[in-house]
Simulated scan of single mutants.
Amino acid sequence: MVGNAAQLYPEPDLDPLDDAMVGMDSMMRSNSTLEDFCRSYFMFHNMEASQPRSIFSYLPILSFTESYIYQLDGFNEKLLQLPSSVPVFSKDFEDVDSKLGAKSVRMFRKDPFRPLLIVLERQGLLTERIEEELRCGEEYWALERELCSALVSNKEISIKDATRAIHLKSFDYRIMNLLLYQLRGEKVNELHMEFLSVSELLVEVSDDLFDYEDDVVENNFNILRMFVKYYGPSAAPIMLAKFITEAEEKYDGLLKALDPELSMKYQKRCEEATSEGGKTYGPSLGTWHIPPVIEDEARYRAAFSQA
């Protein structure tokens, strides 16, 4: 431990920026995701999340990886709060928020996942597919910055970029799942991966609908925000409902292809998560609620700040 951070030290001849370090705050914030992953994904590996041995055998690498991703995600969220007139990673950018730290700025500009890649490679866990998902994470953050900056600057956006971003958003779950296959020496089950990717998409949409007002205030990526910007306030709910319906149809088809016992377990888990979290987890639990759209986000943020 280094202060409030856990660190895996590099080889002596590596660049200091290749240190893989995570802060305690990131570890704490990643806990709920790790719990959800264990309870929702272990069943796809014939494991029980209720058995401590199942969890603790794989917890160190899963926890470190998810915490590292959370740390970078938190840094990216800070970038979204900066004035849109300040170019990201410019000298002016570093002056605007010195709390981000010069080292973090350099690392994010250079190759944010390199330290994690080194750790996974040393552990014999790195695969081309995991590397691809890490690149998806970088792509998601870049799209999030671009799209959210466009919204606050009242610029046009690409709906293709917006839907690409929502598909990429759960890259951390896919990385942990791929790591679990590696840790257990299992071949990746493509049906399970495809099914879970569609489920992840629907969960992300559900989360965005639940967090819509907060995301407007904080200028976070939110699929409803993007649809409102692109289609307009009247058509956005209709187009988003169509988007959800298409994903649900794909989900239902893949659900039927699963082993019946696994299908039943997963649906039960969705029901548990919904009752615990107070929001729809996945598509199979009834109707969707699309909140009233916010036509003037700037006015909404101003009113919120004065409240």
Rank of each mutant, 00 (worst) to 15 (best):
F42H: 03
F42W: 04
F42N: 07
M43V: 14
F44A: 09
F44D: 12
H45N: 04
M47P: 01
M47E: 13
E48L: 06
E48W: 06
A49L: 04
Q51E: 13
R53L: 13
S54F: 09
S54E: 15
S54G: 13
S54V: 09
I55H: 11
I55T: 12
S57V: 11
Y58S: 13
Y58M: 06
L59E: 12
L59Y: 14
L59G: 08
I61H: 01
L62Q: 03
L62M: 07
L62I: 06
L62A: 07
S63H: 08
F64M: 02
F64D: 00
T65D: 03
E66I: 05
S67T: 12
Y68N: 05
Y70S: 07
Y70G: 02
Q71D: 09
Q71V: 07
Q71C: 05
G74I: 14
F75Y: 09
N76K: 01
L79V: 15
L79P: 00
L79I: 15
L80H: 09
P83G: 11
S85V: 15
V86E: 00
P87E: 03
V88L: 04
F89A: 11
K91V: 10
K91E: 10
F93E: 03
E94Q: 06
E94K: 02
D95H: 05
V96I: 09
V96G: 00
D97M: 11
D97A: 13
D97Q: 10
S98Q: 05
K99T: 15
L100T: 11
L100P: 05
K103E: 14
V105G: 01
V105C: 07
V105K: 00
R106H: 11
R106I: 14
R106C: 06
R106D: 06
M107T: 10
F108R: 02
R109I: 04
R109W: 06
K110S: 12
D111T: 10
